[in-house]
Amino acid sequence: MTRQNATPRFSYKGSRLKPLRAFCQVARLGSISRAAEALYLSQPAVTLQIQALERELGVPLLERSGRRLTPTREGELLYEMARPLVEALDSLHTRFREQLRGLDAGELNVAAGSSTILYLLPEIVEKFRRQHPEVRLTLHNVTGASGLDLLRNDAVDLAVGSMLEVPADLVYSPAYRFEPMLITPPDHPLAHKPDLALEDLSPYGLILPPKRLTTYRLIDLVFQQNRVPYTVTLEVGGWEIIKQYVAMGLGISIVTAICLTDADRQRLAARSLARWFPSRSYGVVVRRGKVLSPQARAFIGLIQPQALAPRGYDESGHSER
């Protein structure tokens, strides 16, 4: 029998799981040293396990890309096959104990940005607390890369928010979609102007989130693509602050309908800008291949998809929610 057709024998200390676990950690973390820390092993031990795996399979599994180790083509294939097995075995004890304790046990960590926590999650959190009062729920107020780092390091079970670009190691399941809205004081010239055009916004100063945030970049992109000039009067973080300043007459703004409440109708005029700006989806983000706890699945189950129907205000400024 040739080596190519022979069944591999993983001889390194007589275990197939150890080399596969070491390989999956290196592929995920991009470093022998970081994998060794995660596995509580020495770096030479991890190196020997990777070498044993490559020797038995007869192909290189990792290659250096800059300062990181990344899987080869063969390594990518093995990673996709081995990761669910390794994670399932590693989480077997935890899953077993969770099933024994039942659904109303343990803790749940959820990452979300301020807007999501303030506008989207209150009803969901209320239902979850009512149904599962013994679960300790922690909401981590983080955005962007910070939230993704928590997901990748398993510091949180899931994240809820909006994503435009989804990395390969994460899974994003959108559940809601919100329209882009122009907000002005009720007596503003644009509040009731018929046939509102993007050019109509040019004479008025915009109040926008900071440039580093996605909302600002999307607004800038749309104006640039349509070759419409615009002016930013003020950059400030937080939808509540932006709405307050618009209500005071300090400028107009373009916000996502998620932040508009029934109370805002008393002090603001809101009109859909869906003709020019894309809607924003909000949903659940988890690490690809992660085994979710019963309480995480219960929380996700409360985030009911709304068929991605836009939610906001109609052209007359009345709430559609």
Score class of each variant (00 low, 15 high):
residue 5 N to K: 13
residue 6 A to L: 11
residue 7 T to M: 14
residue 9 R to T: 15
residue 12 Y to S: 08
residue 13 K to A: 14
residue 15 S to P: 04
residue 16 R to V: 15
residue 22 A to F: 06
residue 25 Q to E: 13
residue 27 A to R: 00
residue 28 R to N: 13
residue 31 S to R: 06
residue 32 I to M: 15
residue 32 I to C: 11
residue 32 I to W: 12
residue 33 S to H: 14
residue 40 Y to G: 14
residue 41 L to A: 09
residue 47 T to S: 15
residue 47 T to G: 14
residue 47 T to L: 09
residue 48 L to T: 03
residue 48 L to Y: 11
residue 50 I to N: 03
residue 54 E to L: 03
residue 55 R to F: 06
residue 59 V to A: 10
residue 60 P to I: 04
residue 61 L to C: 04
residue 64 R to I: 00
residue 65 S to F: 03
residue 65 S to A: 13
residue 65 S to L: 12
residue 67 R to T: 08
residue 68 R to T: 03
residue 73 R to M: 10
residue 77 L to G: 14
residue 78 L to F: 08
residue 79 Y to V: 02
residue 82 A to G: 09
residue 83 R to N: 11
residue 84 P to I: 09
residue 87 E to K: 13
residue 87 E to A: 11
residue 89 L to R: 12
residue 95 R to V: 07
residue 97 R to L: 15
residue 107 E to M: 10
residue 110 V to K: 03
residue 112 A to N: 07
residue 115 S to I: 01
residue 119 Y to Q: 11
residue 128 F to V: 04
residue 128 F to G: 01
residue 129 R to I: 08
residue 129 R to F: 02
residue 131 Q to R: 09
residue 134 E to H: 15
residue 136 R to N: 15
residue 136 R to W: 04
residue 143 T to D: 06
residue 143 T to Q: 11
residue 144 G to I: 06
residue 144 G to A: 10
residue 145 A to S: 12
residue 146 S to A: 14
residue 149 D to K: 14
residue 150 L to Y: 02
residue 151 L to R: 08
residue 152 R to P: 00
residue 152 R to F: 06
residue 152 R to I: 02
residue 154 D to M: 06
residue 154 D to L: 10
residue 159 A to I: 03
residue 159 A to E: 07
residue 160 V to C: 05
residue 161 G to K: 00
residue 162 S to M: 02
residue 164 L to S: 13
residue 165 E to V: 11
residue 170 L to F: 01
residue 173 S to E: 12
residue 175 A to E: 08
residue 175 A to I: 02
residue 176 Y to E: 03
residue 179 E to S: 15
residue 179 E to M: 09
residue 180 P to N: 04
residue 192 H to L: 11
residue 193 K to W: 02
residue 194 P to E: 00
residue 196 L to Q: 07
residue 200 D to T: 01
residue 200 D to C: 06
residue 202 S to T: 15
residue 206 L to D: 06
residue 211 K to A: 15
residue 212 R to E: 14
residue 214 T to V: 07
residue 215 T to C: 05
residue 218 L to E: 15
residue 220 D to T: 03
residue 223 F to M: 04
residue 226 N to V: 00
residue 227 R to H: 07
residue 228 V to L: 03
residue 232 V to I: 10
residue 233 T to M: 13
residue 234 L to T: 05
residue 235 E to L: 12
residue 237 G to P: 00
residue 238 G to C: 02
residue 244 Q to P: 00
residue 248 M to L: 15
residue 249 G to M: 04
residue 250 L to P: 02
residue 251 G to A: 01
residue 252 I to P: 06
residue 254 I to P: 00
residue 254 I to K: 02
residue 259 C to L: 01
residue 259 C to I: 09
residue 259 C to E: 09
residue 262 D to E: 14
residue 266 Q to G: 13
residue 267 R to T: 08
residue 273 L to Y: 04
residue 274 A to C: 10
residue 281 S to K: 11
residue 282 Y to R: 05
residue 282 Y to V: 11
residue 284 V to M: 00
residue 286 V to Y: 02
residue 287 R to V: 06
residue 287 R to Y: 01
residue 290 K to N: 12
residue 292 L to E: 04
residue 293 S to N: 10
residue 294 P to T: 09
residue 294 P to L: 07
residue 298 A to P: 00
residue 302 L to S: 08
residue 305 P to Q: 08
residue 311 R to P: 01
residue 312 G to Q: 00
residue 313 Y to A: 12
residue 318 H to K: 13
